[in-house]
Amino acid sequence: MKVLSVVGTRPQLVKLAPIAWELAARGDDHLIAHTGQHYDPLLSQSLLDDLDLPAPDVNLEAGSAPHAEQTARMLTGLAPVLAHARPDWVLTYGDTNSTLAATLAAAAQDLPIAHVEAGLRSYDRRMPEERNRIVADHLADLLLAPTAAAMANLTAEGLAARAVHVGDLMLDTLKAVTHPSTGPRGHQRPPFLTDHPGPYLLATVHRQATTDDPERLAAVVAALAACPQPVWLPVHPRLAARCRTFGIDLTRGTLHPVDPLPYRSMITALAGASGLITDSGGLQKEALALGVPCCTLRTETEWPETLHDGWNVLVPDPRDLPAAASRPRPAGPPPSPFGDGRAAARIIDALAPRTVPAAPAAPLLTR
């Protein structure tokens, strides 16, 4: 079986890792096309190294650009790659512009598409991620749902016949990192865990809805700086650029900006935090799996499972953040809606019976 994975961002590399490990263990042919949507080494190469992933077979180097331009670059770059590779499956991940471009490019060539993390819905179509995931789900031939709620969403949209509940790849990778006997080794503790002992909050801010509105971004940064514990903020390149443009100082109050962390270090930092503050999707899940209370700086979440018993709370108004971040930890263990850490095996099992003989392929184009 030949699988071509299309990825482009840090979260997609986290999802890719257990797929790559599983395909390698089974001896299947796995090609990786990196769109270059995340091109900063701290968001791309460090993840490849940290998770023992092979170098991508092709890197489109699409870089940063407005939505239409970036997606067009990816479409143009992926078309010849897919035409030469002719994989049995094009595997797309999540809800990024890389996913949208891969879906459209593969559909145009009538190649089978499997969408990892299918069925998520925030029900806010102003979010580019929501639009991307809807297109990906409705064009894909196989929908790989991470949770029961995602399966219910797909059923409601008439897509149940091509959907499979497989669990969440996030948990596969998380378990491999937190239980080194089952996966890669070599934790690296971020310096602030040893240089600054005591309770702390971990924060991430990167979504367009937060960073591109100067008033909202200023309010979010002010709220982070007003939290009662030290707040360690790995600074995404988009956040750094917008703060420079808007003249927003990230070094104030209890706020401490740091460089983006490698995956293992980020998980170590999250596991040791008294709480997470984020506008990300994936970190909400990782916080729940690690039993860390979360504050999500949004009006909605595509992961409603995380809201159970107050493990995650939505904080649309930044002025409410200091109080929300100080709330008591929920009683009892967190729920476990994301499976058992064997999603990659179920995904490959779901792909294999559907594999059809492919025409001979030319060598994969490289750049």
Rank of each mutant, 00 (worst) to 15 (best):
T194Q: 09
T194M: 02
D195Y: 00
G198F: 01
L201C: 14
L202T: 08
L202S: 05
V205I: 15
H206Y: 09
T211L: 02
E215Y: 03
R216F: 05
R216D: 03
L217R: 06
A222M: 09
A223M: 06
Q229L: 15
L233E: 10
H236S: 12
A240S: 10
A240Q: 10
A241Q: 14
R242L: 05
F246E: 15
F246Y: 15
I248L: 10
I248S: 12
D249Y: 10
R252K: 15
R252T: 12
G253S: 06
H256Y: 07
P257D: 12
P260F: 04
P262T: 14
Y263E: 06
R264L: 07
R264V: 06
I267F: 00
T268D: 14
T268A: 11
A269I: 09
G272K: 04
A273S: 13
S274G: 13
L276I: 14
S280F: 02
E286W: 08
A287S: 10
A287Q: 05
A289T: 14
A289W: 01
C295Q: 15
L297T: 06
T299R: 14
T299C: 04
T299F: 02
E302I: 03
P304L: 12
P304N: 14
T306W: 04
L307I: 12
V313N: 01
L314F: 13
L314V: 12
P316G: 09
D317G: 01
P322A: 11
